[in-house]
Nucleic acid binder design. Structure first.
Lengths: 211, 211
DNA sequence: AGTACAATCCGTACTACTACCGACATCAAG
DNA sequence: CTTGATGTCGGTAGTAGTACGGATTGTACT
């Protein structure tokens, strides 16, 4: 076993992205793909088997999203560094990712050379962020960092984003309409979002609902 | 020049997907990538230069979305067949794509072998659809086919999806609130969507707003 | 024991949106 | 020239959501 060999594990729900990354990274002989995983819920188990140095992780996935998966990984396996590979170019996502323990964040509109450089940096214990990230953090307001929703709030939000009214949700969960409205207010306050449309976009980006 | 060589052009706004596809398809010696394009607005020009047999096109792109680009291509270049490569697994997208002139529709969760098969079918003048598409068309309601929004309606919808109220939009466009509300009703009626949340999701999937 | 937070519920008044009905001007196509 | 689609605007009534106020329970951590 080459001691300089970097073991990389892929986590993405799109097989084509996995195939593409595998193919691109196979050109570099100091990188080995040791496993991949199409769902956040199986990440920890797979990672324990593969013992990767770097985990290249998509943020938006069904079931368990990338941020939660990252948190689980960084708490359970300190040998593995997490590199987020996202299409979302928003300051909020980056800060959330860093708080969850990610070592780096690159965008899906980067080329394979930059992915390679990022993986090498992460493996050496450094951090790596796409060049456009810094620019974005400056331009976009830093936003609120404390945007963690409770399980109940996430549940309510997912129903909201699916198009259900407060009344519907109240009936579904057999609670009062006022309670749902209170959750609604709390969610909007926490996320610092005003309109229903922004809530829906947030929910979609977080993977709380599909497509 | 090998007469059996299939010239393929890629249209996707994610360089990594382009790189991945190029890498995957390079294993097949009867396929040649003759060009790629990161934006729907430059598709026609690039296609005229490259003269591809098959155009592998993403649906959701900034500026000009894949469906509109497909329509332009199929009307201007009948030599080129369009194969849609989408992550959206909804009957509505498929029917819209076919109406726009696409010869096939595959999902991003297919593997590279299936992409290759799809390209070969399309090049021979056949059509190709992911196996899950047929299942989906049966399970999902056939939905309404006549879902074409006018330019004005698209504009209104984009403002709605950005979180603006009817009042805001009326002020922005200097028209009456009642007019905006009328457009709202027409849009929902055309798309057969009830809730604001569904409108937002539709707009996002159509690429009318970013992220 | 005290504090903090989550989750539950209520009153009241206001704003936004919806559903139903209607209308009129314009412009392209049959 | 009539027909249809589009974009414009209105009345009226009802429903949904928001913005202020509160309040009570339970759990969990210090």
């Amino acid at each position: 076993m080459n001691p300089a060999l970097i073991k990389v594990m892929l986590v993405d729900d799109h097989p084509m992205v996995q195939d593409g990354l595998s193919a691109c990274l196979s050109f570099y002989d100091d990188i080995a793909i040791v496993g991949n995983c199409g769902d956040g819920s199986a990440v920890l188990e797979t990672a324990k088997q593969c013992q990767p140095d770097v985990i290249l992780m998509d943020i938006s996935m069904p079931k368990l999203n990338g941020l939660e998966a990252t948190e689980i990984i960084t708490e359970s396996l300190d040998s593995a560094k997490v590199l987020i590979f996202s299409m979302h170019e928003s300051a909020e996502f980056v800060t959330n990712a860093v708080q969850a323990g990610a070592s780096g964040y690159i965008l899906k509109d980067t080329n394979s050379e930059e992915v390679y450089q990022a993986i090498k940096s992460i493996a050496q214990g450094k951090s790596y962020f796409s060049s456009s990230i810094a620019k974005m953090l400056i331009e976009n307001p830093p936003a609120q960092a404390n945007a963690r929703l409770t399980a109940r709030e996430q549940m309510i939000l997912s129903y909201i984003a699916k198009g259900q009214s407060s009344k519907d949700i109240a009936q579904t969960l057999t609670i009062s309409v006022r309670t749902v409205e209170a959750h609604r207010r709390n969610i909007k306050s926490k996320l610092n979002l005003d309109s229903l449309a922004e809530l829906v976009r947030y929910a979609m980006n977080q993977g709380l609902i599909d497509s």
